[in-house]
Amino acid sequence: MFNVGIDVGAKTIKVVILRDGQPFAQYKGLAGMDTAESVEQAYTEALKEAGISRDQVKRVVSTGVGRKEVPFSDEEVTEVGADSKGIIFVMPNCRTCIDVGAEEGRAIRCDDGGKVRDFAVNEKCAAGAGSFVESMSRALELKLHEMGELSLKATRTVPMNAQCAVFAESEVVSLIHSDTTKEDIARSVHDAIASRIISMVRRVGIEPEIALIGGVSHNVGFVECLERGLETKVTIPDNAEFIGALGAALLAYEGSK
């Protein structure tokens, strides 16, 4: 029996396919301007790569910001619900789960059954999510993936005053003009977003083990700033970007038993 979880994020769409409740295949596609079209495309590709057909899938659960734009979904669940379900499956001792995506950041405290005890969300403002780093990388004329490595080579701490991504872009430009190195600016950017994420995590309470998931978990510069700010290590599970989709797939499996 196959079940599918589909996480429709702001930038990417993640699909996880389970066979008898165990991970079987996963796929990541880009979320284009037309969400419904991108969803259809990602689902078709995911099934094709896994070598199964649509009618073999018993139940589909969607999550993510675009979860309502999945016409073939049997159920929609919130990101918080999907994340907590997914993280406990791969990391049973996780009690605090930090999810930083392109347009949203969230912190979830859960119990051993994956039940949500508390959560806090940063949404609808680019300052608290991956978009902030992306805007700054543009101002620095760097590729997004270059930001992380560069940040690790920083030698000093440069404060960033602007909170808003739009104003911070101008601040980055003036830092470049005042001969601040790109390395130092990159760290300043990551420190800024890490501090916002940390204050959100503190609102739910920090209890080990701590997991970091979502697209921004690939950014080593952000991870370094987050760990330094939290004064503790965080665990980044394998396939950290797929945890939401995995959780949705697990809920689909439970719902079809």
Partner: peptide, 15 residues
């Protein structure tokens, strides 16, 4: 003034 959401977070736990 520009970061009250974060600075006041300590006194405003999620629950």
């Amino acid at each position: 003034r520009r970061s009250l959401k974060y600075l006041c977070a300590e006194c405003k736990p999620a629950t």
